[in-house]
Design a protein around this nucleic acid. Sequence first.
DNA 1: TGCATTAGTGAACGAGTGTTTACTATACTG
DNA 2: CAGTATAGTAAACACTCGTTCACTAATGCA
Lengths: 186, 186
Amino acid sequence: MNDRLDKIKKFYKKHRRLPSYSEMLNIFNLASKNAVFKIIQKLIEAGFIKKEGAKIAPASKFFALPLVGLVKAGFPILAEENRDYLTLDDYLIGDPQSAFLLKVSGDSLIGLGIFDGDIVIIERKRPATSGDIVLAQIDREWTLKILKKDGIRAHLESANPKYPPFYPKQNLEIFGVVKAVVRKFN
Amino acid sequence: MNDRLDKIKKFYKKHRRLPSYSEMLNIFNLASKNAVFKIIQKLIEAGFIKKEGAKIAPASKFFALPLVGLVKAGFPILAEENRDYLTLDDYLIGDPQSAFLLKVSGDSLIGLGIFDGDIVIIERKRPATSGDIVLAQIDREWTLKILKKDGIRAHLESANPKYPPFYPKQNLEIFGVVKAVVRKFN
DNA sequence: TGCATTAGTGAACGAGTGTTTACTATACTG
DNA sequence: CAGTATAGTAAACACTCGTTCACTAATGCA
């Protein structure tokens, strides 16, 4: 059954949609649509696929990657149970409409583990609170810094002792809040 | 046209599939499927949706978030052109079949900007080379460290001066290589 | 003003959809 | 061994799919 699911995943990765029953006939090398029908029912019971009326769609488990924790005593990944699943896209992106990505340049946030070349996910909507990493325009210049509100006026700080805090001379406008960082290796 | 695309995206986010033409009739508050047909054709020309035969599927641009760079001189996000797009899932996960997630515990990799609570994406397949961050079993204990190969024998290092290098007494087995890190803020 | 473009209606159509029923062969189980 | 799931074949079915054609209303342009 799992090799069938893998074939569907492969198809999905390539076409960005689930195959129809007759397409699955070819994928699975079967001759009867009823065989496919039964396979899909199993996958629905297993939680990988869902159905609304006659229309099938991947369930969240379909995309999810197993999430394991590293505990001193042992390594739980090999056991089928106690597994957690996480869909990265859903995890990282709250509202796709208001989110965008920003490639970080500079070392002003290394203290927070945000390096040059990293990609941050920024959401436009949400109000910023003190301590948030924000994309802001300070005195007509765009920058990515930590927002600090002490009393009435706000200023920006780096997470790098090399740089002093920035107090706006004219104005400080918050454009978005950093929700997540992402870094890819080599 | 863009509000129509937004409605489709909303549907997709909820159902994990594209709506059929008759479902779009409701979404768009239209009466004729031909109107939908024409709208979809425009979205295909715009590159958001693709078609194989009669079957529609989202193109990669459909999911992609705008990726901007922060240049000193100005802020390019407001301009419609010169925009880059990135699909996070595709960017981060190479081979979904062999990938899994690991929640990091400990501070042994802070030097690389990998903190306690971060999630790393690990791929099982690929051979590890010196300098890779690896999930390894050293003398029967699982750990996430930097692999170093000097000459014949390999050992593990931390990215934290607090910890000494680890030389295996019995054996060192590499289970997977860290491909990416992901961190979510509050 | 006249003409072309765009956006939408409405109906009809063949092809393909997922489902159902009946039946067969193989494999597992006590 | 007999009995029972399991996995697949084959054919038929209603229904929905995306497409097409002919037509209308509104809009923009020269």
